[in-house]
Amino acid sequence: MTRSLLSISELGVAGVGRILDLADHMAEVNRRPNPKVPALRGKTVCNLFFEDSTRTRLSFETAAKRLSADTMTFAVSQSSLNKGESLRDTIETIGAMGVDAFVIRHGSSGAPWQLGQWTTASVVNAGDGWHAHPTQALLDMYTVRVALNRREGFDGLRVAIVGDVKHSRVARSTSAAFRLLGADVTLVAPRTLLPPVHDEHSTSDLDDVLDDVDVVYLLRLQRERMSEALVPTLREYTNRFGLTPARAARLGKHVLVMHPGPMNRGVEIAVDPAELPGNVITQQVTNGISVRMAVLFDLLGSGSESSLAGGADG
């Protein structure tokens, strides 16, 4: 049966560990003068983006190319898609061209599951609606593992995920991954930005948790949330939930500051991240390549890491 990466829970703790170990190999490849290996030569990866996402798309494209896979990209903004146009027709048509994996980003939760019914290719969920963004979660785990040198897991690690959890696929996947690896997650948000029901501990008092965390994970606040009566004003949001200079000054030097990007400067992050000792936001982006290489290799590779040894031409 074709393997896919749809969610962190489907991957499980062993799967997460396997990907993170593979990512170490990929990071080593990426440090080479010629960061390219022939591991996926002859494989075709189709990036299917129904929602704008330059960063994630470039990251997947780069990852596939460094593994010598052929890539094609089908980017169509959902707004321009006739709602009557069938996702199934799109998938079956492109699939007929001979594709080994679809990397799919879609504005609707669950779209990758539907797609999986209509293709025999592997499916990688590159973000669906509010639901899941497993490769973001994996690169977040990898970033923490490297930054804190914690290969054995995250038991006892205290993580605060701050902001619009309700509408965030990143929050869902990343909190699930942190918990899977043993961390204690606290969601910090006003009640309006939390899911109706959730398992994690939650609070609306950021200052109350700042002294007791090892990781502060800031989420992007979509500006349209103001018009939905979820937050009174941006200023109030920043005052209550933003990483302000006063809060930044309180953070212990060991505390990692993370953000999935793109940042709203002056909203969820009101300091220059470069001035934060624990800022790993850029590392998240860099590690994204290694982790996505690991994911593609895990799904499409020969199963032997020896194919990562040689350099590739081109």
């Binding site: 939760s109 899911p195 029901v197």
Partner: peptide, 15 residues
């Protein structure tokens, strides 16, 4: 899209 409760919360669907 679906009932507002635990299920919609983890499925990321509007309740």
């Amino acid at each position: 899209v679906m009932h507002e409760g635990a299920c919609c919360s983890h499925l990321g669907l509007p309740g």
